[in-house]
Design a protein around this nucleic acid. Structure first.
Length: 637
DNA sequence: ACGCGATGCGCC
DNA sequence: AAAGGGCGCATCGCGT
């Protein structure tokens, strides 16, 4: 195997330009010296390397560089996907990420004394003892100035510009040589594919509708403005609009007295000693559920009323406004401790479910959004994990029988058959509907290690009021309906006797270090879904970008939310694209959950509607329309 | 002016 | 014995 390390220098990343213009490439293959190529040479060299099945390509954040060369020469896209599929990349940052998770250094790396950034400077320091932070902080460094050299022959480049670029190829090569001695971690190959797919998605970006954003802003602002004078008068808000939390806490204390809940650190302190009067105020909780109990204080009620409006106005509206000018290029982080992704700047994975913010996101003209998510994805992940651990699972049996898991457990609680419960649920039976909500809370809460006591609050957050005694009964009934869960909890508990442990997933072999009881329980719940969904995203991206024979060719993934993929599909091939999206998602997930019959359903809409449902007429999938429209479609035929 | 811990909340 | 978790981000209040 030949090893070739490569890096690109580009124009700067700017809003709406996440795969910027290629200026040059730097290469190193371990022989003699690293070398530079301008645009055409870089495309040629990397193109040859991609096609040579005996070459391994090395780098740091390769997804970025690969996207840059594909932007410069789109014909390279199929070969990049092929090479990813063949596992011919070694990204030293991805290796380090997997290693950090396995060693429990993901949040705090003792060697560097902080959370690792996985940057080249950090890895060069760790592996090679080099200090590249000087270059990074030097305002005259060429690091961010390569655009100035576009089109200039290499002979005329300043030496400093050349050396910086050359180091960017040489360092990863030398880091690779050290990492390679440690072997390849589980899911290493897949993580490269996931990173590229996520990067393409981020680079394509997602737009927002200026009119919708303006309307939302106005609506939220009016609601906040209407409440502000009264809140200022009460002292909860200051003249400048900021909140005086001390006043809020005092009022909560006045309303609830000694029953006023404490914050987490307050609880801890109170268990050690009595709190002073000031501390009792300082550690009083002011979360939404507490304020709800303070109904007789009108100022607190008012603050609660506008809490979401205030939050959306300050947190979400500015993000939305970015997308009205350029597509939003969010940053997707390919891998966190559970195997899931994360997203930032902005985080597209935490848009409020209530209507308002989501509907501001719109497809490009000529495209329609297609949403496809898995049914009870995490329970499928858990069920497969249970089968892998114990050889069988009642939970898997229920899923494979095609049953609605929430109705199934609700039937158990009601003491009726599944069929009866389902019939009554579909007929709108109030009792079964409520019990299904309890069951849903149980199915999503207990697998993470939730106690009967905390379940009371958890259920309340899902709109179900139950007593602690009832909660104990429910937990016991839940464990009886999925008896393998007792073994599952025992399996985790047995490994936490002496503190935290190294969790190895029985199916993927993925290693996560420093795991204690609850996160250990949770790992089986989240891990397979995360990996399976990312594999699906890769396959979807591959067909969208590089397979003219696919119904997805020409569509583009725009958002990935753990168990959901959203794409923009050309209006003219909506039905076929949606069907293909569904089938890829199921097929790829089943590679990880072969014994559990997971399902996925696609729907289409002209905005990002949480509630979008599939609408089929004469075999054609149509965009779902909101029954109570607040906004017009941004684009229509 | 800035850093930072605590808190709270958005999502799955 | 008991124990949901994983994230990103804004704000507040305090400290340097």
């Amino acid at each position: 195997m030949r090893n070739l390390s490569f890096d690109t220098e580009t124009e700067l990343i700017a809003p709406g330009r996440y795969a910027p213009r290629l200026i040059c490439g730097s290469f190193y293959d371990g022989d003699f010296s690293p070398w530079l190529e301008l645009r055409a040479g870089t495309i040629k060299t990397i193109g040859d390397a991609l096609e040579d099945s005996e070459t391994r390509i090395i780098g740091l954040n390769l997804a970025f560089d690969l996207a840059v060369v594909c932007q410069a020469e789109p014909a390279l896209l199929p070969t990049v996907f092929d090479a990813l599929d063949a596992g011919r990349f070694w990204d030293v940052g991805l290796f380090e990420r997997l290693k950090a998770i396995a060693l429990n250094h993901f949040r705090l790396d003792p060697q560097i004394g902080r959370r690792p950034s996985f940057s080249l400077a950090e890895l060069s320091s760790k592996y090679l003892g080099k200090d590249r932070s000087v270059e990074k902080n030097d305002p005259n460094s060429w690091r961010l100035r390569y655009a100035e050299l576009d089109g200039i022959p290499l002979e005329k480049w300043p030496q400093a510009a050349k050396s910086y670029a050359l180091d960017d190829a040489k360092d990863p090569f030398e880091i690779y040589e050290k990492q390679a001695r440690e072997g390849t971690p589980p899911l290493f190959k897949e993580t490269h594919s996931h990173a590229f797919a996520l990067h393409l998605m981020a680079a394509w970006g997602i737009r927002t509708d200026p009119a919708a954003v303006a309307a939302l802003k106005k609506r939220l602002q009016e609601r906040v403005d209407a409440a502000t004078p009264q809140l200022i008068a009460s002292g909860i808000l200051r003249e400048n609009g900021s909140e005086n939390t001390n006043e809020t806490k005092k009022r909560v204390l006045a309303a609830l007295g000694s029953a006023a809940p404490l914050t987490k650190s307050g609880e801890k302190l109170a268990s050690e000693r009595d709190l002073t009067e000031d501390e009792r105020i300082k550690y009083t909780k002011t979360s939404a559920d507490v304020l709800e109990e303070c109904g007789r204080d009108p100022a607190l009620s008012l603050r609660l009323d506008i809490a979401k409006d205030r939050d959306e106005l300050s947190n979400f509206v500015p993000r939305l406004e970015l997308g009205t000018v350029h597509p939003i290029n969010a940053r997707f982080s390919v891998l966190v401790s559970t195997g899931r992704t994360a997203c930032s700047k902005p985080n597209l994975q935490n848009n409020p479910r209530r209507s308002g913010v989501r509907e501001c996101f719109v497809p490009r003209p000529g495209f329609v959004f297609v949403f496809c998510d898995y049914h009870v994805a995490e329970l499928c992940s858990l069920a497969q994990t249970l089968i892998d651990l114990f050889g069988g699972s009642k939970m898997a049996d229920e899923i494979n029988a095609g049953r609605d898991l929430h109705v199934a457990f609700a039937a158990g609680l009601a003491g009726v058959s599944y069929e009866d419960a389902l019939t009554r649920y579909k007929a709108g039976d109030k009792t079964i509907k409520e019990l299904r909500q309890v069951a849903k809370a149980a199915n999503f809460g207990y697998p993470g290690g939730l106690s009967a006591a905390r379940f009371v609050d958890y259920a309340a957050s899902m709109g179900v009021e139950i007593s602690e005694a009832k909660s104990k009964e429910i937990r016991s009934a839940w464990l009886d309906s999925f008896p393998e869960m007792r073994r599952y909890f025992d399996w985790i508990a047995s490994q936490t006797r002496t503190g935290s442990f190294e969790h190895i997933h029985p199916r993927t072999g993925f290693i996560r270090g420093g795991v204690s009881y609850c996160d250990g329980c949770n790992q089986g719940f989240q891990h397979l879904t995360a990996i399976g969904a990312k594999d699906a995203l890769f396959s979807v991206a591959r067909e969208c970008y590089s397979d003219p024979s696919s119904p997805l060719f020409g569509s583009r993934p725009v958002v990935f939310v753990h168990d959901e993929i959203i794409i923009e599909a050309p209006e003219t091939r909506l039905t076929a694209a949606a069907a293909r999206l569904e089938s890829i998602m199921v097929d790829q997930m089943r590679r990880y959950t072969p014994d559990v019959d997971c399902k996925a359903t696609a729907a289409a809409a002209r905005r990002w509607y949480k509630d979008a449902q599939p609408v089929v007429l004469d075999g054609e999938l149509l965009p779902w329309t909101c029954p109570t429209p607040v906004l017009k479609p941004a684009f229509s035929r």
